[in-house]
């Protein structure tokens, strides 16, 4: 249900997601993404461009990941959220705890 790939562009880690981040998939998502984040010493971006759906369980995972990066003085950002997902972030106040960029390029621009 969930497809996760990652790439590194000049040391920066970008994690691409595809599918649904719900009560079931968020468990495997956390399992897979956590080690990547822990290993990365540079800012991490999760690309939600192909993510169709997120529920509170998904938000919980995002919070756990964000806390983890904060612990290791790293930073975590999200980009390319669709309208519905962005609304969920706004409603839950998550837009204030994770940086959200419209596109990967804008995130890059902010890194320079």
């Amino acid at each position: 249900m969930m497809k996760i790939t990652n790439e590194k562009i000049s040391e920066l880690l970008i994690i691409h997601t595809e599918g649904r981040l719900d009560a079931i998939t968020s468990v495997e998502f956390e399992k897979e993404v956590m080690p990547m984040i822990q290993q990365s010493e540079h800012p991490v971006l999760i690309d939600f461009g192909k993510l169709e759906y997120i529920s509170s369980a998904g938000l919980r995972t995002v919070l756990i990941l964000a806390k983890e990066t904060k612990k290791s003085n790293n930073s975590l950002a999200l980009c390319s959220l669709n309208e519905t997902i962005l609304e969920v972030f706004r409603i839950s106040g998550f837009d204030t705890i994770v940086s959200i960029y419209p596109t990967i390029e804008e995130w890059f621009a902010s890194m320079k």
Binding site: S56, A57, L59, A66, K67, K70, V88, S92, I97
Partner: peptide, 14 residues
């Protein structure tokens, strides 16, 4: 903020 943030009740809130 992120350090104090809890996820409880978020589902109902949504």
């Amino acid at each position: 903020d992120i350090n104090e943030r809890q996820v409880g009740g978020l589902g109902i809130h949504l």
